[in-house]
Design a protein around this nucleic acid. Structure first.
Lengths: 348, 348
DNA sequence: CTGTTAGCGCCTTCAC
DNA sequence: GTGAAGGCGCTAACAG
């Protein structure tokens, strides 16, 4: 009684379309792919049949017959940078490629040094030179990226991920809303500290829009909802251990009533291990050192942005718009995951 | 320089195996599927070649040529039950079926009334009678499920999801760790209330192991970490509006110092709208009413168990073990997602 | 401009 | 026991 059958309706094939239109399958194929010359009349006839019957290309058959590989270029920081966060992103991409291996892909990785604009530019050049059908890039270095604005060939689809540059002609961006993730951290800090004491915020990588926006969201939330004093501490872009040490000491010496610290990226563990237990600490990213400290109670909350998933989603969408020629959303938002000691195991 | 090529190694085909073995592809096909009669000698030879070359069946070609459908049965509560939570599960399943439509599936849904053991049994019977290759079931009614323990045919793979019954011979279970999700709620309640006042817990559906375990985790956490008084309130299984009303009043009258309420399922919104704002409220599931109240600040935190994702994962894994004949993990844990006003938008 | 044909890798049927 | 052949739906190369 309550039985429903979900059976994909029988899909019409090009052969059937050809029969209906009274032409050969070759001709139908031509109008589907808009290649070769077909008379307007038959083209119209075929189009109307396709529409009427709701034709959808059988990707399976298509991929099976199609022999040529699709070249995709991936432009991301070195795997070990940012506490191996980028390695996890790369793993996600590779995994998705593996899973979709019947799509005959040739995925090439171009790694750059995220602290070297010159190297970034070089790798971007190289990636473009390979003449890929799709380009997946983490546009961390805004200024340098914009220089390529008008250099993207017609036949190369660009998808951004992790951070965004809306002014750039990219088809889509996959990532987390930086501002809202900062606000979420602010909320958590609020309930952790209960509006008591003062808060420190680490401002890192000033040139990285993504990370700065998190700090902004955090500060905005606390300013709106609490009366706590908030002070910012600036760190030079290249993370050096002694800088963490110096900054941690500085924070402690300047705040006798410090109740919370917010670090808007994965380097939160460098601070957590240098501050007393009673200071509540919130940071980003489920990298190894952070996970360990979260479990140990040194870090109170982590916001996660699912690097693997991010990589997977990004590649899947790049494939959608290149191989499958489908439309993809301009913006794909990833959830702002809240991790604490109690639920971290469920994320591994 | 930093260019890596990810090119799937060339896979060996049955044709090539046939050539190497000096037999025809028909014979190779027979040993791969272990059907028909093949001499031991050639069987061994082919197996060793397959192993040596790392043969993996090309699913794309396989699905293209294979004409017969795989029948899968899905046994879940009526879509509208539990605030449409089950509808979302069903959507996830349907979506996954859509996405994997080239697998030629016939997915049949058997809906049951989760408050009627009799109806559950009937639907289970019907599902089995359709003689499916795979059976996906939400074994909410433990006792009734166990009755089918020895009635699963050889050729029918059973996958559980949402809740589990480890003693049942199922291949896998996909779901959230109930106990840990309860503990996570406890942690959040702890920081929200700051160990002040007393806490009420709603105990619903006593026959539902999944939900009770959440309440247990919650209470355990608070007992370990705080000194707050915790009282339980029991609700009859069938949720009736007046029962919520009565219980809410009872809670308020019995606790002048009530600071928090925990509802281990989706009906949290019925209570949230009946309790004063200063009571911190934590519940489960991102159903419509709960989402609305979370945004309005009436509910403080929701634990989400990704119904759509759960459905998708469950079907994907059922397909894996039926169509693809692959091994699947005995346990697939879903993340314990923490939702609050600030990050809820990123989950929609 | 259009039709024909030979695959892609696998499965199935039929014949020997 | 085994081989041969046709076909799944689509692509691409080759004739006209």
């Amino acid at each position: 009684m309550c039985t429903l059958t979900h059976s994909g309706l029988k899909m019409i094939t090009i052969k059937e379309i050809a029969e209906q239109a009274g032409v050969s399958i070759g001709t139908v194929d031509r109008v589907i792919h808009d290649r070769g010359r077909v008379s307007e009349k038959t083209k119209n006839k075929i189009h109307s049949i396709m529409e009427k019957e709701g034709y959808r290309r059988n990707i399976v058959a298509s991929q099976l017959s199609n022999s040529r590989k699709t070249l995709l270029a991936v432009l991301i920081p070195h795997p070990h940078q940012n506490d191996s966060f980028w390695g996890m992103i790369g793993d996600g991409i590779r995994e998705a490629g593996e899973k979709l291996s019947y799509f005959k892909l040739d995925i090439r990785f171009y790694y750059f040094d995220r602290y070297s604009p010159v190297n970034y530019t070089e790798q971007f050049e190289e990636a473009l030179n390979s003449n890929p059908s799709g380009l997946l890039v983490a546009p961390i270095l805004a200024e340098e990226t914009m220089k390529f604005r008008d250099r993207i060939p017609e036949n190369c689809k660009v998808v951004f991920f992790n951070s965004d540059l809306p002014e750039f002609p990219r088809l889509s961006c996959i990532g987390q809303d930086s501002y809202e993730s900062g606000r979420t951290a602010g909320k958590l800090m609020h309930i952790l500290t209960g509006d008591r004491g003062s808060i420190a915020v680490i401002e890192v990588n000033l040139e990285d829009y993504h990370i700065n926006t998190r700090a902004l969201g955090f500060k905005d939330y606390l300013k709106e909802q609490t009366s706590m004093a908030i002070s910012s501490y600036y760190l030079p872009p290249e993370n050096r251990k002694d800088e963490f040490e110096i900054t941690a000491k500085k924070i402690l010496s300047e705040h006798r009533d410090l109740t919370g610290l917010f670090v808007p990226n994965s380097s939160v563990h460098f601070f957590a291990e240098r501050l007393p237990d009673n200071v509540k600490i919130i940071g980003f990213d489920q990298v190894e050192a952070n996970t360990r400290q979260l479990k140990a109670g040194q870090i109170d909350f982590l916001i996660n942005q699912q690097p693997r998933k991010q990589g997977e989603l990004a590649l899947e969408n790049l494939i959608k718009c290149t191989v499958l020629q489908e439309e993809i959303p301009i913006n794909i938002k990833l959830p702002i995951e809240i991790l604490c000691r109690e639920n971290i195991n469920s994320y591994e």
